[in-house]
Design a binder for these strands. Structure first.
Length: 652
RNA sequence: GCUGCUGUAGCUCAGUGGUAGAGCGCGUCAUUGGUAAUGACGAGGUCGGGAGUUCAAUUCUCCCCAGCAGCACCA
């Protein structure tokens, strides 16, 4: 007999070898019906697994959080089965569950079409209807390799060959189809239910390596039932409406065009946001002990060679021959020698900031020296990576480099974490993911230095009272980093703020200061950006606010709209008074009905509307309508403007 | 960069082997109205670029460019 501890702490005796399903049945038949899996000592397992020792268990049903992953992973297996029964010349590879769904990667010469996707989904429903059990089997590694090789499944065989020798593998069988898999799964295909949908086909590299073959990946989403699926699909649609690329053109903020691929043409309205944000950050930095500088865009290669960028980062750099182009139509634009003397557009500001630091002799008393720049950088990003404002080729970082002593790293890092916290909260971002990226395989510096650097950043995060996760191998080659990630409307995560410790660049560019001991020392460099880039951050903000930006950032803060032309003169007075008060106001005295004007400015997301007609002109008032509200209030003009000028103040 | 899809008016899209259409927007005129679309008329397109097949290509084929989704990349 074995003792099974239930979630409520009670213990029951069962025969050795009892399965989870039997336990569920012993509790109640109705529980057994809705059970999907069992948690044994905290680990999710199949209901069919026999238990042969004392454990504590928890039955997992559709309602539980763990259910979704089981359903999704099982749906991936069913999709693979469906694909292989419809397209027998297809090899399977891997198919995990992911956030909101699942995918499976297939190796096939022909890509899948949209029509194929529909066919596959119909086939999946048939398999689910059949309700075959998911049966777990344990095979020897060698048997598994032989089996998959015989079937022509070279990818699966390769996967198993990568497993430790002598270790058995598990396979899951549903009907006559099987797949190598750790499990667990729901009891039968029927338990997947109908709350799933295949979404899209895409390419993905085998084992996530661009050097490998490109496989065909099919993505699906799966939920507990049709209702949850519907809700998710609706949410996707809603999210698309707040895509910054859509809102950017609807709101006339900026545009892109192919002649300047990946670089923003800011329109007047968009540039208001840009300038407001920059001004806000500048004020924050000024009061946090930073000194603002401006450094060159185009810099001789020699500096990039010295900094190491030419070696490690060249493929992302734009180079320019420093030669006068030939004006003769028949001759080449530049000579062969042009490539002997190249300049490059800066992809980052750090080497330039070290040049400023290196001017004159620095004393330990000068440290920490915090040099800030709204630095315009160019990076030749892979074209497939470009994405609206989020990933551009010309960007402006709210960059700064802090030159300090080793013993100042922690206090400077804490100060930075506090600054980020303040700024993000001012800007309305509370859901920020913080990652501490640790040493990568390829790195400069000794382990001792890395221990110190990682420890310093970790301590800073703890002292600043921040929650964070750690990511192995994700650091820069010159030092560990703290990354601040914010999600966009469709759930993609973008790195915005960052703090990076660098022991390497001061060495390479020979930065030094004179210590209290009168000897030369190397400063440590902290690379840091609060917003990351203005472009990306504005993109994230547009999506986060769905275009309805806070008053201080709104391109147009108020529109004065007339009801009849008899109020035109008064409207002009109101408009002028607003401009004089420093409000970004526009005047709408067009010959249109007030309904039309209200609708248009509401759709344009103008936060405040002042409506004036004969009555308001007579009484020197304005009828105020705030965006999103159906009501309006009538206030004396002076009072309205006083309240508005107060409301449009930036957070700092 | 890789795989796939897409590219028609300022925007959203329909359509066809015989050189094009809608709605919105824009312009003109009429209308002076009280909080999410007043009406009429009009202008506007080398159908992403190049080549090929054809009597004839926006439509079919190929190449290029750009955009989108995903992957890879992201100092």
């Amino acid at each position: 007999m074995i003792k099974i501890t239930m979630p409520d702490g009670s213990k029951r005796d069962y025969a050795c070898g009892t399965t989870g399903m039997e336990i569920a049945q012993s509790i109640s038949k109705s529980l057994a019906k809705i059970s999907l899996a069992i948690k044994i000592d905290g680990a999710v397992s199949d209901l069919s697994l026999s238990i042969d020792k004392d454990v504590s268990i928890e039955i997992i049903t559709r309602k539980d959080a763990e259910a979704l992953e089981l359903i999704r992973h099982s749906a991936a297996h069913v999709m693979a089965q469906a694909v292989q029964s419809l397209f027998p010349n297809t090899q399977v590879t891997i198919g995990p569950s992911i956030e909101n769904g699942f995918y499976y990667d297939f190796a096939r010469k022909e890509p899948f079409s949209t029509a194929d996707i529909e066919k596959i989904e119909r086939e999946m429903r048939k398999i689910i209807e059949r309700g075959n059990k998911f049966e777990r089997e344990i095979w020897t590694r060698v048997d598994a390799i032989t089996y998959f090789k015989d079937k022509g499944e070279i990818y699966k065989a390769e996967l198993i060959e990568g497993l430790p020798e002598g270790e058995d593998v598990t396979v899951y069988k549903q009907g006559d189809w099987l797949d190598l898999c750790k499990g667990p799964h729901v009891p039968s295909t029927r338990h997947i239910g109908g709350g799933f949908k295949l979404l899209k086909v895409a390419g993905a590299y085998w084992r996530g390596d661009a050097k490998n073959a490109m496989l065909t990946r099919i993505y699906g989403t799966a939920w507990r039932d049709e209702k949850e699926l519907k809700a998710y699909l609706f949410q996707l649609e809603e999210a698309e409406k707040r895509d910054h690329r859509k809102l950017g053109s609807e709101m006339d903020l900026y545009h892109f065009q192919s002649e300047a691929q990946g670089s923003v043409f800011w329109h007047p309205k968009g540039f208001v946001i840009y300038n407001q944000l920059e001004g806000y950050i500048r004020r924050r930095l000024n009061s946090s002990g930073y000194k603002e500088i401006k450094t060159p865009q185009l810099i001789d290669n020699k500096l990039w060679e010295a900094s190491g960028h030419w070696g490690k980062y060249r493929e992302n750099m734009f180079v320019v021959p420093d030669e006068i182009p030939n004006t003769d139509d028949d001759a080449p634009v530049v000579s062969d020698k042009a490539f002997d003397k190249l300049m490059a557009l800066k992809p980052m500001n750090c080497p330039a900031h070290v040049q400023v630091f290196n001017q004159g002799i620095k004393s330990y008393r000068d440290l920490p020296l915090r040099l800030a720049e709204f630095g315009c950088c160019h990076r030749n990003e892979p074209h497939g990576a470009l994405h609206g404002l989020m990933r551009v080729r010309q960007m402006t970082q709210d960059d700064a480099h802090i030159f300090c002593r080793e013993d100042q790293i922690t206090s400077e890092s804490v100060a930075f974490c506090d600054l980020v916290k303040t700024v993000y909260s001012d800007l309305g971002f509370n859901d920020v993911k913080i990652v501490l990226a640790l040493r990568p395989e390829m790195r400069a510096g000794s382990d001792e230095v890395w221990d110190k650097a990682e420890g310093g950043l970790r301590q800073a995060l703890i002292e600043a009272g921040l929650e964070f996760t750690e990511a192995e191998n994700e650091g820069a080659f010159y030092g560990p980093k703290i990354e601040y990630h914010i999600r966009d409307a469709i759930g993609r995560s973008w790195q915005c703020g960052t703090l990076q410790l660098d022991f390497v660049l001061p060495e390479r560019l020979d930065a030094s200061y004179i210590g209290a001991d009168g000897a030369k020392h190397r400063p440590v460099m902290l690379h840091r950006a609060v917003l990351g880039t203005l472009e990306r951050f504005i993109g994230v903000m547009i999506e986060s606010y769905a275009g309805k930006l806070p008053l201080w950032l709104a391109p147009t803060q108020v529109v004065v709209a007339t009801i009849t032309s008899s109020a035109d003169d008064y409207a002009r007075e109101v408009h002028k008074a607003l401009l004089d008060a420093g409000v970004r106001a526009e005047l709408d005295i067009r010959n249109e009905k007030i309904n039309y004007k209200v609708r248009e400015h509401s759709l344009a997301k103008v936060p405040v509307l002042y409506v004036v007609g004969a009555r308001e002109a007579e009484e020197q008032t304005v009828a105020i309508r705030r965006l999103g509200s159906k009501n309006q209030s009538v206030d004396p003009l002076d009072k309205a403007i006083a309240e508005l000028t107060d409301a449009i103040k930036p957070p700092y």
